[in-house]
């Protein structure tokens, strides 16, 4: 009896220690991230931020980035839904290989992805696509394609994990109650997968928003034409105007964080992303 009691209290002590450790790590990381943002802020000032907000080039970059990244995210979602679903639900030959293919854009430095895209849309298929009216190289379309390519795997991976983690019994019950497979997908699987799907979409968007390497390679960094916020930061940094670059980055960060927090708060009742 006494021995049992002792060992139980030791377990609780161990558990307690583990959670003190967990909390410690979380708080340290939060502190680190906040200090990082503070370091950025400390190298900027109010006037420069106001100047950035009034700058027409910044206005262009902001609208352009939001437009292209949202479009890229929408396209990534459309592609990732079937890919994630099939990879999660079906066993077919070469599945592990196809699954690994989606890792390529995550593993490769974006610059290399950009070169691959440039070769594909340039010397490889450029002429044929141009005849169809598709011009990706050095065009805003190229920005969307590069962002899509870099962001889509994040959506595919998240969606796949989400579909894999669902309780299949629900779908089976729905089938026994007379739902067709299509109805099961729309009325059971999708609502159950909602959390993960929104998480994947957010992840893809966040990745598209900050994309630079592949975009710069495929679409160039032409001012007021293919200039995303990341490009604007890069250009100002290269001129040696660090204050302006940081101010641009801060505004970009603020907008992204605001959007993400709003989304998370609005969805927090049902969704944890």
């Amino acid at each position: 009896m006494d021995l049992k009691h002792q060992s139980r209290s030791r377990t609780i002590f161990k558990k307690g220690l583990l959670f003190v450790f967990f909390w410690g790590i979380l708080l340290l990381i939060i502190l680190f991230f906040l200090l990082l943002i503070y370091s950025l802020v400390s190298y900027s000032n109010y006037e420069t931020v106001v100047n950035v907000l009034r700058d027409p080039e910044f206005h262009f970059a902001l609208k352009f980035t939001l437009g292209t990244s949202l479009l890229a995210t929408a396209l990534a979602t459309i592609v990732a839904l079937p890919c994630g679903y099939l990879l999660s639900r079906y066993r077919f030959p070469g599945r592990a290989f196809f699954d690994t293919l989606f890792d390529i854009p995550i593993i490769l430095p974006p610059l290399v992805s950009g070169i691959a895209l440039l070769i594909f849309f340039g010397p490889f298929l450029g002429e044929q696509l141009a005849r169809l009216g598709i011009k990706a190289v050095f065009s805003p379309l190229g920005v969307v394609i590069a962002q899509w390519f870099i962001a889509a795997p994040f959506a595919v991976k998240t969606f796949k994990h989400t579909f894999s983690s669902l309780d299949r019994r629900m779908e089976k019950v729905a089938r026994t109650l007379g739902f067709t497979p299509t109805m099961v997908f729309y009325r059971v699987t999708m609502p159950l997968a909602r959390n993960g799907i929104i998480g994947g979409i957010i992840m893809a968007w966040a990745r598209a928003l900050g994309e630079f390497g592949a975009t710069a390679m495929l679409a160039g960094i032409t001012r007021m034409k293919t200039e995303t916020l990341s490009v604007a930061v890069f250009l100002n940094m290269s001129i040696g105007d660090m204050k302006f670059a940081i101010a641009t980055a801060l505004v970009m960060l603020l907008i992204a964080l605001t959007l993400l927090v709003i989304l998370k708060v609005f969805l927090s009742d049902e969704v944890r992303v």
């Binding site: 450029g126 710069a216 390679m217 679409a219 160039g220 032409t222 001012r223």
Partner: peptide
């Protein structure tokens, strides 16, 4: 007539050899 600006002269040479511009 500028169709694209890039980050470095090396990249300009790279894309020209790929038939762009």
């Amino acid at each position: 007539n500028i169709v694209a600006t890039l980050e470095s002269p090396a990249k300009v040479l790279g894309v020209l050899t790929m038939g762009q511009g």
